[in-house]
Design a protein around this nucleic acid. Structure first.
Lengths: 157, 157
DNA sequence: TATGGTCCTTCCCATGATGGGAAGGTCAAG
DNA sequence: CTTGACCTTCCCATCATGGGAAGGACCATA
């Protein structure tokens, strides 16, 4: 089947399939004489595997390791578990960070009248000279891209 | 003061200060004859404001709006609150998403022996033909960049 | 004054995962 | 043979951030 079919059946966009091939996450496929990529059921299966791992938030690098382990029949499950646990930790750190932000913000928002007057504790806090004295102490401070929309951009927006 | 000083005093890197200027988040500064940017206490104050907003996860676009409101003495606090509440929602959606991922993963990891044998429910699940049948149903599915390290890259790594 | 070190300038590139779109080739059905 | 749907490659954009190069500016000290 062609890339479009493979994309539809796997849930990975054609664009991404080409990208994964280009970075070596999946091997180069067979091509027709005309240069069209040809995919088998097995390839689709692999792509689905990748999509799921991606949906669980694994990075492409980690997915590469997972795919290798998956295809290595003599793997040790501890290696897989190790990757998973590491990822869980990363996720939890992120969650903690985001929670800290929301809590600070909720505090601030609670005290803001939110009417037509200019007084605003939210701005006051942002402008204050000392550290954010709220619950959230910015221990873990990373950026968070809140709009990295995976998948459709036009339809889903 | 020069950009280096302003960076140090505000907690915003010189690189970022230039970037913020280039995208119009902050106005162009006065320059010395030699072309060096010159900053005042007020500028540093603004930069600190920006850093805090950034630490709370606001996007540069939102920060722009917040800065405008901050500097508009006839603002309505409701506008500020509106931005804050919107951001809180976004954060909470993200948190929900991440929690869903961790829960799925924890489930899978729990059932994985994590020893030298190849049997691995984590891989089995990723490779399974049907949808992830776990608690996490991938309702909200976005990517999450778990390593967008803000700030130092060498020292902090 | 010459030299060196530290600062500043601009410009380009990279990140990670993804989409958009253009220019052009292919294929199957009518 | 034409049309439309599909494929190809290539380049660009995102978002906020850092890295680094090439070159100029400034200052202190020998």
């Amino acid at each position: 089947m062609n890339i479009g079919q493979a994309a539809e059946r796997s849930g990975v966009s054609a664009k991404m399939i080409r990208y994964y091939e280009s970075i070596g996450l999946i091997p180069k496929t067979v091509r027709t004489e005309a240069g069209y990529r040809v995919y088998s059921e097995t390839d689709v299966h692999t792509l689905r595997f990748i999509r799921r791992a991606r949906d669980l938030g694994f990075s492409v690098e980690q997915i590469g390791e997972l795919v290798s382990l998956w295809q290595d029949r003599s793997r040790a499950s501890t290696d897989v578990k190790h990757i998973a646990l590491g990822h869980i930790e990363a996720l939890e750190r992120k969650i903690t960070e985001l929670r800290s932000m929301t809590e600070t913000l909720k505090h601030l928002a609670q005290h803001c009248h939110g009417d037509g007057r200019p007084e605003c504790p939210i701005l006051d806090e942002l402008a204050s000279e000392d550290d954010l004295h709220n619950c959230a102490k910015r221990e873990t401070k990373f950026g968070l891209p809140l709009t990295p929309q995976r998948g459709r951009t036009k339809s889903g927006a």
